[in-house]
Amino acid sequence: MSADWPAIRFIVNGESRAVRVPAMKRLLDVLREDLRLTGTKEGCGEGECGSCSVRMNGELVNSCLVPVLQAEGAEIETVEGLSSNGALHPLQQAFLECGGAQCGICTPGMLMAATHLLARNPHPSLAEIREGLAGNLCRCTGFIRIFESVIAAAGSTRGHRGPADHAR
């Protein structure tokens, strides 16, 4: 019966995609199940944890709260689209070096939120980083090294002490 659904088209990480799924299917499930882009994670299903964060037309959204019909025609960016030709995105490189990822389950969403933040504000203050990532819950890191990762990627030291002050 699934073939009966009308096609919904959108662009994911630069590629045109079409799915035939119920209009109320969550964008999260379409990405994970229909497109097998499992980098985007589900942590809560209620828009609280941010693990499912993706960008939709340049805006950060929780993909668990987007009925896929509302993504029709949109450009979607997921964690799988961050790196290019095997080279890590500067944020990915910074997370790797600064300890911004531990268990890794919040990491894809966190990277998308950080990408969104730096796209809007290339040199954020620490307060702006905190606000920009507040919708992405991390239970492992206490966020400190995530902040440092974002600062390292932004190449900015404004309003922030160096990593050396935290743990040497």
């Binding site: 499992t38 994670k41 964690v79 799988e80 790196s83 990915q92 790797l96 300890g99 990822a101 531990q102």
Partner: peptide, 21 residues
């Protein structure tokens, strides 16, 4: 030395496979 996390790149690329994946 603070060598990078062993499985870090897989996690950062979103290709680490958790059970629901």
């Amino acid at each position: 030395a603070s060598v990078p996390r062993k499985e870090g790149i897989d996690k950062l690329l979103g290709r680490a496979r958790y059970v629901d994946d």
